[in-house]
C-alpha cells in the first residue's frame, strides 16, 4: 500500500508532511507534492499533520482522487535512484486543475 496526496494540496503545498516523513519519499512539484508509492512505508506520520486533509492511505482515498495514485506513480518513477535530484515535474492532469486558494 501507500499513502496518497490528493487535490487539496494543490497550490497549498506548505510542506508540513515532508518534515514528518522518515524515509523522505515525498517529492515536490510546482503545484503539489507526490508520495513515491514504492518508497512509502505506510507509517502514517504525514496524514495527521496535513492542514487541509489532503493525505489518505490508498485504500481509503476518496474515489474522485483515485487518479492521484496513478499520477504520483508516474511523476515519481525512477526517483528512488536519485532522491536528491530536486523537484519533480507536475503531472499533466494536475497542471490542468484550476488555481486554488487553499481552503479545502
Amino acid at each position: 500500500m501507500t499513502y496518497v496526496i490528493g487535490t487539496n494540496c494543490v497550490d497549498v503545498k506548505d510542506r508540513t508532511c515532508i518534515a514528518e516523513c522518515p524515509v523522505d519519499c515525498i517529492y515536490e512539484g510546482e503545484r503539489m507534492l507526490y508520495i513515491h508509492p514504492d518508497e512509502c512505508v505506510d507509517c502514517g506520520a504525514c496524514e495527521p499533520v496535513c492542514p487541509v486533509e489532503a493525505i489518505y492511505p490508498a485504500d481509503t482515498l476518496p474515489t474522485e482522487w483515485l487518479w492521484h495514485l496513478d499520477a504520483a506513480t508516474a511523476v515519481t518513477a525512477g526517483r528512488e535512484d536519485e532522491p536528491d535530484a530536486g523537484p519533480v515535474d507536475d503531472h499533466p492532469d494536475v497542471l490542468k486543475l484550476p488555481a486554488r486558494t487553499g481552503s479545502a
Partner: peptide
C-alpha cells in the same frame, strides 16, 4: 493492522 507510532522507523524496516 500495523501498530507502531506513526513515523516509527520500524515501518521502514518492515517494508
Amino acid at each position: 493492522e500495523v501498530r507502531w507510532c506513526p513515523g516509527c522507523g520500524d515501518y521502514a524496516i518492515l517494508a
